[in-house]
Design a protein around this nucleic acid. Structure first.
Lengths: 235, 235
DNA sequence: ACAGTATTTATCCAACGGGTTAATTTTCGC
DNA sequence: GCGAAAATTAACCCGTTGGATAAATACTGT
């Protein structure tokens, strides 16, 4: 009785389905923003029916908030894996910059989601107790590293850890988030390998030069590939 | 025959109307993004009929591109008014940062529009020969200032002007564009006067410390109000 | 094997939103 | 004054979209 009916109609997999929906939603929201996202496209991408979104998560805004929360959870989790205690303070800062840069590079949807949420004036984030309780470990990491660096004489000055945290994020975020327009303005591809390497080196050099007061020593420690051209600027 | 009819129907004002439409569109697009913007709202805000948008400018995307081009024109025009030639190099850099910061602060729609355009992967900008021909004078300004600063001994190192330009924009842009989410994350208002002053001081100190190698001298020149509290971090 | 529940599918719909059509009013050249 | 062109209005069109309903199908414990 090989009825063409018995060919595997569908299986149940609530958790899998939920995850596929959230993944699809993340793609959609980061590609088109909140208003530009289409519920039908999310369903299609998740290999599901539109009704499933409402069944498993809720309406469009619920879906969006869940995606946003997930994005914060993910970066916070990765941030926590960074161990800087046993590094020299300058190395630790370089490591932090390197991580931030590469995280943003690997997770462009995160940048887009943050921009979308800021367009909404953080309306959804404000309602999320979940995200508000997820503090980045970086501020405290920076605080201890800077204290240690000043004590050891590596750094000349005390820095407000919050300001430095924001500045490091800023240097990486802006470049990557705005790479499309900047590439048009400057008439060259800012995302190609060479340009990316150059940017990472610049960011590390800039911040370490400001902190240590030395510009040469910095480069021996930077994780970015050393530039060999004699003409290349240092910062 | 005092018919209530004769009470001033409407006057013609094509240019005025066009401008009101573009202003309204700028507000709408920067507040809601391209997909979130509503043509009817733009019309209403412009005190016009929806048909007028199509008559005077074109469809939604045409309208959006015109707004974007206008925004670039405006910042480029203001940038050109900045005269740095007769300033000491460190002062010149501080001045540049100060301008950038205050321009972004005064023109939040510009930030939002850039984010919107980057969400669209600069699709519209690529088609705009107008914007592509509008180069920022800042890159060349930075180049000459840095050259001069290195020659005079003010600066220790050569910096790639493009990287520095991007970094300065980044430090200001990210803070302001993301102030909504950052304010939630940090649990305090990043846009209040004190916070803004602190940020400007930090940005100037960071960049000048990296360039000059001195952190104390920097502050005498920064345009931001001097901090008096002994505990305050320097960078 | 069967009842009950969890999960999924197939349609439907009312509101919305960009865009258009056609009529109306003002202005301007002559 | 007058007719044509420019500017403006009101009303409509129709595909899209978020969301809802109800029926079908798979799994679970008993």
């Amino acid at each position: 009785m090989a009825k063409a009916k018995r060919i595997l109609k569908w299986q149940r997999d609530p958790e899998g389905m939920r995850q596929r929906i959230l993944d699809a939603a993340k793609q959609e929201f980061s590609a088109h923003g909140l208003a530009g996202a289409r519920v039908d496209r999310i369903a299609a991408k998740a290999g599901a029916n539109k009704r499933m979104l409402y069944y498993h998560v809720g309406n469009k805004e619920d879906l969006y908030l869940e995606v946003l929360e997930g994005a914060y959870e993910k970066i916070r989790a990765e941030e926590r894996t960074l161990a800087l205690e046993h590094l020299d303070p300058p190395e630790a800062i370089a490591c932090l910059i390197d991580f931030t840069w590469n995280y943003f590079l690997r997770n462009p949807e995160f940048l887009a989601l943050l921009n979308t949420e800021n367009l909404a004036k953080a309306k959804h984030l404000k309602r999320s107790t979940k995200v508000k309780s997820m503090h980045s470990p970086f501020v405290e990491m920076i605080r201890t590293v800077v204290t240690r660096g000043v004590a050891r004489g590596d750094f000349r000055v005390a820095v407000d850890p919050v300001q430095l945290y924001i500045s490091i994020a800023a240097l990486a975020f802006f470049y990557l988030s705005n790479s499309a327009t900047l590439s048009v303005i400057f008439g060259r591809d800012l995302l190609k390998k060479d340009a990316r390497d150059e940017r990472l080196a610049h960011m590390i050099a800039l911040v370490l030069a400001a902190l240590t007061g030395e510009s040469t020593a910095v480069f021996g420690r930077a994780k970015a590939p050393a530039r060999q051209s004699a003409e290349q600027p240092v910062v």
